[in-house]
């Protein structure tokens, strides 16, 4: 009634999932090869969490749209991971200049600087041409930042909406996933339920930069029309709990 493991039945099943099914065994445990594959995936995710953001490279890629670099009240990565409350607040010496804008864009390291490095400027490039007639503040680069840091940045800039492009918590199979969080009338103390999120921006496996920009532009336009963001603003079902908090 039984037969040895053959590759045939697994082919269909493997094609339907990225789950690590049908791994090789050594006795009861995982084989050396599988252990090393898992270790390599974990190492990628760990490095994504701990690698610092190369702010200069982001500024250079932003070119004339680039604004200042700011920091949260977090001192270092260790504190960042343990004190999300400090990562949501702007350091006192931010030097942001107040104005009057429709939109502030914040490029923030979050939990994966690699995601930001790989995808953030490309999303900005794809998005801004879709926002004809909007006044957009110079793009702020934020270090040791949580999503809610964007609220305080937007208030300092005098912006009616903030878009935070931030590195999401890395998974073993997704160390470079970018999230985009949209908040209408940002202010300190906004709840996560008052934001909309487009997550998993990570071509080719996740959303492409253009697809993300298309969804964001539609959401942002609708947000301005309705005068709100969050659970009251649907159409993509994108309001999510924030992995980058």
């Amino acid at each position: 009634m039984s037969s040895d493991v053959s590759r045939d039945p697994w082919d269909t099943l493997r094609a339907a999932t990225r789950a690590r099914v049908g791994l090789g065994r050594a006795g009861d445990g995982l084989s050396t090869a599988e252990n090393l594959r898992l270790a390599a995936a974990h190492a990628q995710a760990r490095d994504a969490v701990h690698a610092p953001l190369d702010a200069d490279a982001v500024l250079a890629a932003l070119g004339e749209r680039a604004g200042p670099v700011v920091r949260s009240r977090v001192a270092d990565r260790t504190e960042y991971l343990q004190r999300p409350d400090l990562g949501r607040r702007l350091a006192d010496d931010h030097g942001l200049e107040g104005g009057s804008y429709d939109l502030a864009v914040v490029v923030a390291d979050g939990l994966s600087a690699r995601a930001v490095q790989d995808h953030a400027v490309a999303v900005v490039d794809a998005l801004l041409p879709r926002l004809e007639g909007w006044s957009v503040a110079p793009v702020v680069v934020a270090e040791q930042a949580r999503v809610a840091l964007g609220d305080e940045i937007a208030v300092a800039l005098g912006a009616r909406m903030v878009l935070v492009l931030i590195g999401e918590r890395p998974g073993m199979s997704a160390p470079d996933s970018l999230g985009a969080y949209l908040t209408y009338e940002p202010r300190v103390g906004r709840a996560d339920s008052e934001r909309n999120c487009v997550s998993n921006i990570r071509p080719p496996d996740g959303l492409t930069h253009d697809a993300a920009a298309e969804v964001l532009a539609a959401l942002m336009t609708e947000s301005f029309r309705l005068g709100l963001s969050g659970v009251g603003l649907k159409d993509t079902g994108a309001a999510l709990p924030s992995a980058a908090g």
Partner: peptide
Amino acid sequence: TVPGGDDIMLNYQSLSFQDVLQ
């Protein structure tokens, strides 16, 4: 337990089936 200890939906690591056999 999840395949390979890697939950591809919740993006975290739990135990593999092999971990428990062992």
